[in-house]
Amino acid sequence: MIRTVNLKKLYTTEEVETTALDSVNIDIKEKEFVAIMGPSGCGKSTLLNLLGMLDNPSEGEYYFLNEEVSKYTERQRANIRKRNIGFVFQSFNLIDELTVFENVELPLLYLGVSASERKKIVEEVLERMQIMHRRDHFPQQLSGGQQQRVAVSRAVVAKPALILADEPTGNLDSANGEEVMSILTQLNEGGTTIIMVTHSPHDSEFAHRIIHLFDGHVVTENYKEKFHV
C-alpha cells in the first residue's frame, strides 16, 4: 500500500537547516497495523505527515497505492487524502465551533455525500463509537476520551483504507487510552490499515510491526508473529 524510497525531509529557516528525516525506506502492506516509535524529535510525526500527504518530502519517492505522489500539488494530495486517509491526532483537533455530529460529518461534506446519506453514515459511526448521546454537544463540553472518540469517528466516517494516528492516547488517561486502542484494533481487524506514532510501549503492543526511528533514520523494524500477509 505504501512504499517510500530514500525519503528525506529538511526544515529550513533563515539560518539553520535541520534534517528531520533521511533515507527512509519503508513498505507497508494493506491491513497492516504499524507503530512508529522513537525518542522526541526523531522525526515520527514528520514521517506520519508525509505518509498522510499533509506535507511534501524534500527528496525521495513516495508510492501510495502504487502511485508516486511525492511531487503532487496540494490539490492532488487533497483529492487522494479525502478518499483514502483518516487522521487521529494527540490533541484531537476538533473544530470548536462545530458540534460532534458536524465535526464527524466534515469529510463527507468534502466528498459531496448527500445530506440524508451523511446523516445515516454519521449516526451509524456515532452509535458504533458509543458517542451518539453527545451528538449535539460542542467539543469543549466533552471529556478527553469522548473527544478522541469523536476524532476517531471523524477519521473513519469516510471509510478510508488507511488511518494515521499521531499519539492517539497521548492526552488520555489509561482507561480512555485503552478504549481508543481497542477501537483502532477493531478497525484494523475490519480491514483498515493503521499507522500509529506512539511513545507508549504498551500501545505499540497492539501493532503488528514496530518501526524504530532515531535522528531521522529507520533503525529497526520488529515484526510480530501474529500478522502474516
Partner: peptide, 16 residues
C-alpha cells in the same frame, strides 16, 4: 488557522 488545517485534513480543497 487550526480550523483550516482540520478542514484540509478532512479533505477540503483550497478553493473550498
Amino acid at each position: 488557522a487550526k480550523e483550516v488545517g482540520i478542514r484540509k485534513v478532512a479533505g477540503a480543497a483550497r478553493k473550498d
